[in-house]
């Protein structure tokens, strides 16, 4: 199995607080790699460092062999690093279709057209509609972002990330705030998605994590304290401590 995304020796501190310590991990083709750990362990920070919202102090990030470490956020995204946000981050004034079409137009090579009406671009619309269908939102493509439910927003986020055909996809708590039935549906969707694009996923829903992740890394106080298959992690004493501590809360 080849590594699509590699992170080596990534570190970051806020003042004297070390939030990320020498994190190294790999994301391989076809896998779902889950990142778990107690609140405040630095999971979202790690995602933000990898995608470039936050500048890292040291470390290297490579995507398909290309060094992204010195690129700003938008260039990392253009290089094939997709993501979703923990806090729903869609465009409330746009329809679902336009949300996804906006994402699609970043990677279709059409550049910065200033004359043709974007909403009538049938190629873009078809691509966006496909992504919505695949995620299960096809019927809601004309709904305004602001009028959609929280569960629909989570799915829309995912559709926006998928439509750009990223080489690696970072998901920040995709299940957050979803009901049980919605979560189960999303797990199915993600299972079929990982064949297309490897997923690095931060998630609190342990049932979902252990049912779908191929590998798990446990993050505590900014560093990875355990990593391996779900079985290995389940039996790791350190991971158990952190994980059980989390469950107890």
């Amino acid at each position: 199995m080849s590594a699509v995304l590699t992170v080596e020796g990534l570190s970051k501190s806020f003042g004297s607080l070390k939030v990320t310590r020498d994190v190294t991990l790999e994301l391989h083709t076809g896998e779902c790699h889950a990142l778990i750990g107690p609140n405040g362990a630095g999971k979202t920070t790690l995602i933000n460092l990898i995608t470039g919202i936050l500048p890292a102090e040291s470390g290297r990030i490579t995507l398909n062999g290309r060094d992204l470490s010195d690129l700003p956020m938008h260039q990392r995204a253009a290089a094939g690093l997709g993501r979703t946000f923990q806090i729903t981050s869609i465009f409330p004034d746009f329809s679902a279709l336009e949300n996804v079409a906006l994402a699609a137009q970043s990677s279709d090579g059409g550049g910065m057209g200033i004359w043709r009406i974007a909403a009538s671009d049938s190629g873009l619309n078809a691509k966006a509609a496909d992504a919505l269908d695949m995620i299960g939102l096809g019927a809601r493509k004309d709904a305004r972002g602001a009028d959609m439910s929280h569960g629909e927003h989570r799915l829309l986020e995912l559709a926006m990330a998928v439509v750009t055909n990223p080489d690696a996809l970072l998901l920040d708590e995709p299940m957050a705030g979803l009901g049980r039935a919605e979560s189960e549906e999303l797990v199915d969707t993600l299972r079929s998605l990982k064949a297309q694009v490897p997923l690095l996923m931060v998630e609190h829903d342990m049932e979902a994590v252990f049912s779908m992740a191929d590998r798990i890394s446990v993050l505590e106080s900014g560093q990875i304290i355990a990593a391996g298959t779900p079985e290995q992690v389940r039996s790791d004493p350190q991971a158990r401590a952190a994980y059980l501590g989390e469950e107890a809360v």
């Binding site: 995608t51 919202i53 956020m73 938008h74 260039q75 995204a77 253009a78 993501r83 946000f85 981050s89 869609i90 465009f91 409330p92 004034d93 746009f94 336009e98 079409a101 906006l102 994402a103 137009q105 970043s106 990677s107 059409g110 550049g111 910065m112 057209g113 200033i114 004359w115 043709r116 009406i117 974007a118 909403a119 671009d121 926006m160 750009t164």
Partner: peptide, 23 residues
């Protein structure tokens, strides 16, 4: 209403998200 304008209008709503899409 163009592709350019769509990105501009999106950035009014959520500039970080637009950046994370590669713009």
């Amino acid at each position: 209403m163009s592709r350019f304008g769509r990105v501009l209008r999106a950035a009014k709503q959520n500039p970080t998200r637009v950046g994370s899409l590669g713009y």
